[in-house]
Design a protein around this nucleic acid. Sequence first.
DNA 1: ATGGCTATTTATAACTC
DNA 2: TGAGTTATAAATAGCCA
Lengths: 140, 140
Amino acid sequence: MRRRIEIKLIDDNSKRHTTFTKRRKGLMKKAEEFCRKSDSTAMLLIFSSSKNCYGFGHPEIDYVLDRYEADSSSAEAGTSAAGAVTEMETRIGDAVESGRWEEAVRGLGFDAFDQLTAELENIRRQVAALQTKFAAEGWR
Amino acid sequence: MRRRIEIKLIDDNSKRHTTFTKRRKGLMKKAEEFCRKSDSTAMLLIFSSSKNCYGFGHPEIDYVLDRYEADSSSAEAGTSAAGAVTEMETRIGDAVESGRWEEAVRGLGFDAFDQLTAELENIRRQVAALQTKFAAEGWR
DNA sequence: ATGGCTATTTATAACTC
DNA sequence: TGAGTTATAAATAGCCA
């Protein structure tokens, strides 16, 4: 069913994207496990062809970058952190990744927009609430 | 001979270093294959406890860093918005409903929460902007 | 430490719904 | 099409030279 696969560029767009998504997740997981097990300082940055950025860093991306720049005496570090590490972020990233947001959205009516916007705001609030809750629990 | 291993810090120095070396090689290989197969822009940086730096980048580390920094400084360009709204709603909805959200989110640190919240807010803003834009165009 | 060598766990390409 | 399943390939923890 499955033969040894050759490591070369996948021509078929659909297959390439499938592999991109699967391997991206695998890579992210490996990087995380690597840091957890060996307590290493490391970071991983990935840009999709549609410009989405996925990143992971331990202890933080910018910390690793600072060390790299200190090492190679390069330029300045970016300020804000990067992208998808959690499942939630990954889900959102994947949705954005599919590249048809604007198209699909055009079909909505004005009211549907209000509804969607409200929904997103609601989710944002829920996330904020969880942050508060977990902080109170001491991030066990 | 070998049981399922727990992903946690390895206390024994010798074993930790062995794992560090083995997994570092595996991670590098994966990153390389990932780039070769999906033609992605990505980079991986690892610092050993003895300050050694291991890195991989495609096409080059500095190229990926430049993009990261460009992204960070102009995080406002709402043009990167994409992805079907319906799909987005479904995905987010599923995550919230399945209850896996809280689980996934618990692993985040306080700062990561800020990041996620900001990301959600950014998406909400982009949706609102599209609403305005399409309304102005008369929903053709 | 270094470099194999399995026994197993993991990752994942191809396939299915 | 996207999400889930399965059969294999690949990674690697525990050992030993």
